[in-house]
Design a protein around this nucleic acid. Structure first.
Lengths: 226, 226
DNA sequence: GTTCAAAGTGTCATAGGATGACAGATGTCG
DNA sequence: CGACATCTGTCATCCTATGACACTTTGAAC
């Protein structure tokens, strides 16, 4: 996940590959992703070795690393797709919406789409990622890192929409960070108190989180009972 | 940074160690930290090997891993200290302050203290960490992971202060996430646009970020010029 | 179709992070 | 001092990740 990424998550939408070579490459790539998730689901992220993934597709592990920069990378394919979808959704929002509203609708929309399996991947994959990240700190770290790195892009888009310069103006940075923040807050509550909050969907919780943030967070401290 | 951490960042405040063994252990630990940061500052995080750190203190690299769960761990010592200081600062805030105000003052206070070298470590170490994280994605990932894991603790403290139950109530989760968010937004702007924002301190920027969040983020989108 | 360059892959080699096992050294306490 | 716990070094091993080189496939130019 460090310096040189061969071609980290290119995975554009449906481009009809011209040559046989391209098609074969695409097939290998997807086979690796499938195999990886099967194994992850079966034995967890950490317990699955790159060699096992590669063997399942009958390529050498060296080849695996020609497709993915790291073991995390293959798992974060979907996160990358989600992020790209978010960018699209955000720019597609009507231009007269306040930024935070546009962001909120875009984020919630994407999460709903993901939950309905309407993005490039199945719902199980989405759930699987959530589960995996609870058990694997390295995967969690990778996911957070990915999100963090993408935040710079998001900031630029937000700044553009606001018509301000991201150098010197903190506001677009905060708005972009808020998207992250709302998602994390929602995911945290659901993961840590799964039984208590029952079947609240991530999308719903994120929407609530945005509502809370937009309210300004001005909650009183409780009077000390004692 | 995964499953078994030997004794990740214990580093309590000044406890007078009783036995010679304890003292020696403490000395080794600190020597490792010092050596690590010297080397990190000199050649960067990734380029420094555990063996080099261990050699500098004249212990085996196996011993290094008995003190720190990973190479990241030794670098995140200070982040852990900062977090503990934040918890203390937060609980020390007057009970009649609204939570978000208490959080804001606590966060900004800690960052100012860190910038003045008033915590357990020198200012250079603080700056060093910032620099290192720009160049090392693995360290960045570790830092984010650490922050994320601590957020659960922070959430509980916030919930306690608000007198609410963190299961089912999203608000404390959002407040806790906001602290993270404000810090990240501030750090991002300063790091990516260093020249533009000149000598704005991290503490100032974080304070501004809180102000923006408390305002509710209700910014209009710019009219499309063309 | 033949030829040639480019791209993809396998094999081998290597570095570094991290962990388990075990024996020896070093403290601690009675 | 002697018994015991703890710390440490050595060795062995696994896994991730990368570089180097040779071989094969593919696509394109002639």
């Amino acid at each position: 996940m460090s310096a040189t990424a061969p071609e980290a998550h290119p995975a554009g939408p449906e481009t009809q590959p011209q040559g046989r070579r391209e098609r074969k490459k695409q097939r290998t790539r997807e086979a690796l992703i499938d195999a990886a998730f099967d194994l992850f689901a079966e034995k967890g992220f950490d317990a699955t070795t790159v060699e096992e993934i590669a063997d399942a597709v009958d390529v050498s592990s060296r080849t695996f690393f020609r497709y993915f920069a790291s073991k995390e990378d293959v798992a974060l394919t979907f996160q990358e797709e989600q992020f790209q979808a978010l960018l699209n959704a955000l720019t597609a929002r009507p231009p007269d919406e306040p930024v935070i509203t546009a962001m909120r609708r875009a984020v919630v929309g994407i999460m709903e789409a993901a939950e309905r399996g309407e993005l490039g991947f199945a719902t199980e994959r989405f759930d699987c990622m959530m589960t995996l990240m609870q058990d694997s700190t390295t995967l969690l770290a990778g996911s957070l890192e990915h999100a963090q790195k993408k935040q710079a892009t998001l900031t630029r888009v937000v700044a553009d929409r606001m018509g301000v310069d991201p150098a010197g103006d903190l506001r677009p940075h905060v708005v972009a960070a808020t998207a992250n923040c709302a998602f994390r807050a929602a995911a945290d509550m659901i993961q840590e108190y799964r039984e208590a909050c029952g079947d609240v969907s991530l999308a719903e919780a994120a929407d609530q989180a945005f509502a809370i943030i937009e309210g300004g967070l001005n909650f009183p401290s409780a009077p000390r009972p004692e």
